[in-house]
Design a protein around this nucleic acid. Structure first.
Ligand SMILES: [Mn+2]
Ligand SMILES: [Mn+2]
Ligand SMILES: [Zn+2]
Ligand SMILES: [Zn+2]
Lengths: 149, 149
DNA sequence: ATATTAATTGCAATCCATTCGCAATAAGTG
DNA sequence: CACTTATTGCGAATGGATTGCAATTAATAT
């Protein structure tokens, strides 16, 4: 039951209102481990609220991001599309395979270390880091090799 | 004199032609240590070739990037605009100050270490990494503090 | 419960960085 | 110089994301 009111409370303390659309959109991201772009969130949400509008999805994703309930990510070299995931998973980064487009999550303390070192050195304060790796996963490296042999 | 032909040779071996536009656009990035977006490259180049077109700038930046003569970067959380710099500087990453918009270059071996570890662990091959940090530089942290006191 | 008020939604129009189609131009070869 | 084909300039198009606005609805006070 604290569950039920968590979003509502967060919204209220920001002077915002709880709406079915916001609840729905957050639940979609909470219930998947995928990384979804706005279109995909819209597609999934629309099945449960057929008159939902894509503009509401964009606005809601921005609200949820501002409230630190979801994280916005970019993948691969072309950062033309934004993807989202809940913050419930711990700190991690992403590797995108250019062969099969699969996304592999990378856990490492080294990024935070870089930030700590730079902060100590310069006095800067970090608020955010965008880290995306790109290349070929083991499977795709193997099949490439059998091609080029 | 090897200078003069370096770009031409690289182009030729890719089946591409040397043009005044390409020479001009590369020279602009070679002669600055700033990170320029396409508009700014265009602005500067147009002073020297008034009939240059922005589409040519975009096409040329892509050609130069493909040939590994320049690097494409994203800065700060909003990756809506692409920036470019020459590859003559060594491997480095970027910190963007949200206060004064200044960009500070960060040198560290840790990013490559992350890649090496992940490659050893999974067999993946890396082709590219996009790493951008964001926060407040020491100057802006200081002036923020004097505000909130 | 009901009225009140301001936040939110749906919809369409708009933004804006980047790309694309195409005819005219120009680079490279011999 | 002539020929082939890459490249340019120009305008139109793209596509993800945002915005203006009138209608709706959530939250609060009565
Ligand atoms: Mn993830
Ligand atoms: Mn740089
Ligand atoms: Zn793969
Ligand atoms: Zn600053």
């Amino acid at each position: 039951m604290a569950e039920k009111t968590f979003l509502a409370n967060k919204l209220k303390s920001a002077g915002l209102r709880m709406t079915p659309q916001r609840k729905l959109i957050l639940s979609i991201l909470d219930e998947t481990s995928d990384h979804l772009d706005a279109e995909e969130v819209y597609r999934r949400a629309k099945k449960l609220n057929s008159k939902l509008n894509i503009a509401t999805v964009y606005r809601t994703l921005n609200v949820l991001k501002e409230m630190d309930l979801i994280e916005q990510r970019y993948f691969a070299r072309d950062h033309g599309v934004e993807y989202y995931e809940t913050v419930t998973k711990g700190e991690h980064y992403h590797f995108t395979c250019l062969g099969c487009r699969k996304i592999i999550e990378v856990e490492t303390p080294k990024i935070k270390q870089v930030q700590a070192e730079f902060a100590a050195l310069t006095g800067a304060q970090f608020t955010h880091a965008c880290v995306c790796f790109e290349g070929y996963c083991a499977d795709c490296v193997d099949s490439e090799e059998s091609f080029t042999l």
